[in-house]
Amino acid sequence: MRRFAENLGRDAVAGLAELGQATTLLAESLLWTFFGATQRQPVRFSGVLSQAMEAGIHALPIVFVLSMAIGAMVAIQGIYSLSIFGAESKVTLGVALSVTREFAPLITGVLVAGRSGSALAARLGMMTINQEIDALTVMGINPVRFLVAPALLAMILMLPLLTWFADCVGLFGAGLYVTQRLGMSATAYINELRQAISVADLMHGIGKSGIFAVLITMVGVINGIGVVGGADGIGRATTRAVVHGISAIVIVDMLFAYLVLQ
């Protein structure tokens, strides 16, 4: 029992230390972004662009497939549930709100955490082990400015865009099923969507994805720079980055929904 309490205390302290480290890194990244040029060390646009390509553009195919499937799945379940009350015709409203406010940002966030968060942790972990971070430091190149800030900016830029793309594809996937199942025309479906979705609904999902972007990047960075050991350490960091990233997204999503809808 005592050992359990000791381990719990140690883990809690370590968790708080990581949270503090992540907050410091976030603040430092933002400082470099806004004031790096005044220190003669600007955040390079080319670095942001290459990270944006990797995290955003290269993720488009898988976001397309998953969003299409999720949209269709929500429509199938929606029509089934509403048919119990004879209210199938209201399915467009349900699909529109659930896809834009919840499913698109959540699925995109989980996907990017699995894809780019883990890649970031692995890359930084490998760079730590290979002394590349030390090399940058002794060259007078701040690693946060050179590595973390571009990744953060790229993620903050690309995740909302991916979420917007997922909104469109998810609603398209749902529309394919709804129009077939309910014998509705595509024009009628689009008109119902336009009536159902407000700008606030879209911004609710896209705004959340900005927070997810920060979470995914910071979790990836913290796990990457904390790597000890060799390949085993990188494997552990990568797994941890995915698990912690997805957990953080889901918990923050729940808190966000609670706070906004109260």
Binding site: N130, Q131, E132, A135
Partner: peptide, 13 residues
């Protein structure tokens, strides 16, 4: 004003 070469080379891959 200094230069450093690490044991592993530490080239950015």
């Amino acid at each position: 004003k200094i230069g450093v070469a690490f044991q592993s080379g530490a080239l950015l891959s």
